[in-house]
Design a protein around this nucleic acid. Sequence first.
DNA 1: CAGTGGTCTAGACCACAAG
DNA 2: TTGTGGTCTAGACCACTGG
Lengths: 233, 233
Amino acid sequence: MSTQDTRSWQSIHQEVLRRINDRIWRPGEFIPNEAELAEEFGCARATVNRALRELADAGYLDRRRKAGTRVALHPVRKATLDIPIIRLDVEQRGAAYGYSLIELVRTSPPVRIRSRLRLQDGVEMLHIRALHLANGHPYAYEDRWVNPTAVPDILSADLSAISANEWLVRNATFTRGDIAFSATNAGPVEAEMLSVPEGAALFVVERTTWMRGVPITSVLIAYAPGHRMHTTL
Amino acid sequence: MSTQDTRSWQSIHQEVLRRINDRIWRPGEFIPNEAELAEEFGCARATVNRALRELADAGYLDRRRKAGTRVALHPVRKATLDIPIIRLDVEQRGAAYGYSLIELVRTSPPVRIRSRLRLQDGVEMLHIRALHLANGHPYAYEDRWVNPTAVPDILSADLSAISANEWLVRNATFTRGDIAFSATNAGPVEAEMLSVPEGAALFVVERTTWMRGVPITSVLIAYAPGHRMHTTL
DNA sequence: CAGTGGTCTAGACCACAAG
DNA sequence: TTGTGGTCTAGACCACTGG
């Protein structure tokens, strides 16, 4: 209640969050403005601003000029997922990573891929199919299309030694990406690749990336049954 | 190259990002320190700091005192996922939302739930099973355990009218949460609930939340086949 | 119009870690 | 020890938007 001698923005961040969690400031309710809080906490307004801005970014507060700051009605929690190199993913689980290139051809992509990448027809792309292994067992099956126009250097990379996944992460940054997660029953191809029965439930990640509007790659990764993608809120 | 008259931190953010994407500053390479950049851009050091801090938070830069600032080796991209109320999720897809409470009992949870929540045995919890509908069709099957000690008010809520999902989002904030995504084959129960054949691949979300170490709820949500969780990078 | 948050400044001191 | 980022301040002006 009384004036605190907290002086860092972290302290203010913590104290404001406490008041939200303890429902001292309830969802939808206005909280004091920056000047008032600065006085209460005995600090500059910029310090309060920093604390409240972080809380607003995290979804705890809604801030609007003139209107003021209020506690968010639905504290929208955001989970952040890293987009890792599969090799690191495997190694982090304490397993030995293996990689096997199955197919690497330059050909014309199917309509599904063309439309997803918004490419004209007749364009040739690199089609890569590969298997990622953990302790010698199938871990994930990767089916990828790469636009060689966007990353010509990949044509001279040894994709039997380094996975396209890893090569691209290291050598091709992107400005925009779409990612989708879903579940699918293993078809004949996936079943054989992952050594599982047809129909097994597979966790699937589809990702497409662009660099300033130029499509780089579109990939589908099907994980062996039992795979869990985990994170913290 | 020459001094720019950009004066906002957003401009500096944009320009630094451009230099990273154009590989003017390459991964692992040091960039000028804040004072030098402030001079180049003709602004205060605090303004540069703001821009670089945002880029570091986004994973583009690595910053360390004394050492300096360098371009991140593996630009770890983070996908942020909202944790929505299922009703809003359905409505956003343009469908009419429906909800059906299947079971609501107070009983002792199985070991699997107890250990996940780190609860003593003998504790009674609320077990809720429900079906979420979109345009009258099964959308997701929810199997939830709630710790009534953490949220006693839920005992007086009408969980046949409002889903536990929504009630908890509105009334019980949490300080920590685990979330996991996976795929599973529909068992007899899920198959019946979702009106799909046994063995169908289901997208599964498991979420557990705590408030200052006190477990609130643990829920498993199995989505009907075809469900896709989508986001942008 | 006026109140609120958003941003910028010039300067200062501090915390950390590399050499 | 010393150079770097991290933070705080007091003040100022601006941008947006509610009343």
